[in-house]
Design a protein around this nucleic acid. Structure first.
Lengths: 183, 183
DNA sequence: CGATCCATGTAAGTTGTTACATGATTCG
DNA sequence: CGAATCATGTAACAACTTACATGGATCG
């Protein structure tokens, strides 16, 4: 799966591993993430498989860098994967839900502190989607009109994050209220 | 993390690996899941660490089974973990969002088919939360009044699934409409 | 009589995390 | 002058997935 995130990130222009890491920490952070070490290992595997090539670009000021470029085989693999119908829904792994589910022995104050802290974190994430990320996408599209089709998809992806965080914050508010009264 | 799901599943009564697998495929499915093989391996590790013990129970009709029981050390470890404040939000990994983000080269019909299929799957999941899972929790609590505190937490966890799926379906409806018009 | 349930695991492989390692440049 | 940014990786470990393996009992 990281494979396709990287191929996707390379599908527009050749970039470095470092730039892909920034993509994974930035734009793609809310639907896929990875550590630097894993990115470089996956890039090596993709190069071995012939889905991308790389070459070193020497630089005077900054350290030399390795530029990765997607091959025709890589593009074909990516497009085939993108078109594959998904017959399942994405599984969730959420440590907060695990904790809540088993928290019957904890005292009320501990549970409430946990939920309130999460509320502030998710509220901040919601603001990020509504402001910084929304602005980023619209400036990107305005600067390059060739990205109109991409821009729509980025906006749709962003909107998923916004709606998901909205629902999560609403759920936390509900949960806090119920715990206060019934726990 | 699976560690705590298993300790949590064992915190009420001793059960078998098979029953834990059913728990992981059932009630805990929407916040944590695992394969059978991983469950048995993790149970071994937990036993080695002294967080649980096991003994074989012979059965006439059915195959013999190994019953796992949490130790005092296991209970302490679990409670300490439950009380730990979470300073980050759960990261998302969603292959549909990866696909949508990079789908600019695909044709409209393929993208719409993808989204509509996902809509039907998430709608079904939403119904599950609203009906089967809600009923399951309320019958469990009615049958055993000692589970009132647990029942509230289970219900809160279920409600997270319901709100999340509601938001996801709403997002898919929005996305389908925008793609139909603007893509 | 075939599918499903009960019940437990091993082996091999892939994916992901954490820690470590290096070193120049630019910004405040 | 210290922190952050640019830039790339290795090593070790932990977590997770997929495939394989077995075999009786029950249900439709």
């Amino acid at each position: 799966m990281l494979k396709y995130v990287l191929l996707g990130g390379l599908s527009k222009q050749p970039v470095t591993g470092y730039q892909l890491k920034q993509f994974v920490d930035g734009s793609s952070r809310h639907f896929w993430h990875a550590q630097t070490s894993q990115i470089y290992r996956t890039l090596n595997a993709l190069e071995t498989a012939g889905l991308l090539t790389s070459e070193i670009q020497e630089q005077d000021v900054r350290p030399d860098r390795r530029i990765y470029q997607i091959t025709a085989a890589g593009q074909a693999d990516l497009q085939a994967w993108l078109a594959e119908p998904m017959t399942e829904i994405a599984p969730t792994k959420d440590a907060l839900l695990v904790r809540i589910f088993f928290s019957a022995q904890l005292d009320k104050a501990t549970v409430l502190t946990q939920l309130r802290l999460q509320r502030s974190l998710h509220q901040r994430q919601l603001n990020l989607y509504q402001n910084e990320i929304a602005d980023l996408i619209s400036t990107q599209v305005q600067q390059n009109s060739a990205l109109k089709r991409d821009g729509l998809l980025w906006e749709i992806t962003r909107r998923n994050g916004e709606l998901a965080e909205e629902a999560y914050v609403r759920w936390l508010d509900e949960a806090i209220e119920r715990i206060e009264i019934e726990f």
